[in-house]
Design a protein around this nucleic acid. Structure first.
Lengths: 103, 103
DNA sequence: AATGACTTGTCAAATATTGTCTAAATGTAC
DNA sequence: GTACATTTAGACAATATTTGACAAGTCATT
């Protein structure tokens, strides 16, 4: 069972739900088919603009896609670290602090 | 008031507690004084090996430093994002999932 | 103003990430 | 099976990001 809330998974689900081919979506979004394939398999990460383009194209909720995208990035970054969870919690506090003090 | 649990802050505190100069620590750890200064001011981020070297040199708790280092990295990455907190929570779940399934 | 401590800005080198291309794999229909 | 379309894998080039080094800067002390 592979995680079903990754951006890649969402993208693939959206595409299949609309019965589109990689080739078609790639053409519409002006990107290489192979690259799109990698995005859907979480082998490569799109940038923010690309995520927004996906949201627009699929008429999907942009926030949902951006959230999946950002959390993927973070999870990947800490995945292999021993203190992953603790670090995430500590990071939350730091973010809070930042937002409150607008340093 | 600036965050007091950043790695930079810890490093500076440790150094001052031991009454050492940037120059001295930099020499001992074979790094540029300016770079060390940047580390202490959170302008640049050391890598993991450097963090470990700091811990050893200051005889500080390595885990504490690594945790501060990693959470700094994460916080910085999401700082400017609207969904920062949500993304961190979502990332936690993804990390959990990963650890459980060893994908 | 000379010295020492620290900081700032800039640049090139090193790293990492991304996009492209080609070929191989996989699937589907005949 | 073979022919064709779709998807994936791998290698490479192009970009972007990060890093370390250096020179010049500020600030304080004397």
């Amino acid at each position: 069972m592979t995680a079903n809330n990754t951006l890649g998974h969402i993208l693939r689900t959206q595409r299949e739900a609309k019965g589109l081919l990689l080739r078609q979506v790639a053409a519409a979004l002006d990107m290489d088919t192979a690259l799109l394939s990698k995005f859907e398999r979480n082998e490569r990460k799109p940038n923010k603009e690309q995520v927004q383009a996906f949201a627009k194209y699929y008429q999907a909720n942009e926030d949902e896609l951006l959230l999946a995208w950002l959390s993927d990035k973070i999870a990947d970054e800490v995945q292999h670290e021993v203190f992953a969870k603790e670090a995430l919690k500590a990071a939350e506090k730091k973010v809070d602090l930042f937002k409150r003090t607008k340093r």
